[in-house]
Design a protein around this nucleic acid. Structure first.
Length: 226
DNA sequence: CCAGACGTTGTT
DNA sequence: GTCTGG
DNA sequence: CCAGACGTTGTT
DNA sequence: GTCTGG
């Protein structure tokens, strides 16, 4: 699964990497992107810029926004058939921008946060879908969900799902294709050999923290010295 | 027909 | 235990 | 994902 | 909105 990630980069790097224009005055580096927050994505509707959408998809027909708390992920294998996701995947897709994501590895009763990155790509995009919900009072809320898939070998050592990470060459296609078969073909896992992970501090557990230290490697043994 | 759900993950 | 909020 | 709350009435 | 269950 993917329930927390980082998007730490310079605005200029993001502009060059994703071929977009950024208003630098609003740029924020983020190390602890969490559900319900407004986070940076590129939508099919406005692919030339960053849009800030709330993480946790609220379907357009929802009566209660609370459903969004549960819909932070969508299974890539079945999203096209699910009432909550089918409209979104067919007409509203997005790129969820990241430099790495967190997964908690269970060891007995304790959970150890790990940070996963791509060796060759300091920045990448996860496959996302989004929707627009009219809140009472004529306010539109735009929300998104991150697609998941079966883990590759390295990810299976800590979890039984992983986010869909798009290779740079198919990012544009993900935004453009409404064909379900094509979409499934785009959801390919990067090779284990292209990924790396390391243990990080449990400071990341609290969504209120946001600091470069969150993605810094820590040693399991070292931590216990203090 | 109407009512009610609509989801994922992980754990058992 | 389960839901909400970040 | 994890952390933190989980309730009501009436009064300030 | 659309599907499932009764």
């Amino acid at each position: 699964m993917c329930g927390r990630y980082s998007f730490a980069a310079l605005a200029e790097e993001v502009e060059n990497r994703f071929h977009i224009k950024i208003d630098g005055s609003t740029w924020k580096v983020r190390y602890n992107c969490a559900p319900t927050q407004e986070l940076a994505v590129i939508t099919n509707e406005e692919p030339g810029k960053i849009s800030y959408l709330r993480w946790g998809l609220i379907p357009s027909w929802a009566k209660d926004a609370a459903i969004g708390n549960k819909l932070i992920n969508a299974r890539s294998e079945s999203a096209a058939e699910k009432p909550a996701f089918k409209n979104s995947i067919s007409s509203r897709r997005c790129l969820v921008l990241s430099n790495g994501f967190y997964e908690w590895k269970k060891v007995g009763k304790i959970k150890i946060p790990m940070f996963i990155t791509l060796k060759e790509h300091p920045l990448f995009a996860m496959a996302g879908i989004w929707d627009r919900w009219s809140a009472p009072g004529d306010i539109n809320i735009e929300t998104f969900s991150i697609l998941t898939m079966k883990p590759n070998e390295i990810m299976s050592t800590i979890h039984n799902r992983m986010p869909v990470i798009l290779s740079p060459s198919i990012e544009r296609k993900w935004l453009e294709t409404s064909d379900p078969e094509m979409q499934k073909k785009l959801c390919i896992s990067p090779n284990s050999s292209a990924m790396q992970m390391h243990q990080v501090s449990t400071l990341v557990n609290s969504p209120a923290t946001d600091h470069p230290d969150l993605i810094r490697p820590v040693g399991g043994e070292q931590a216990s010295l203090f």
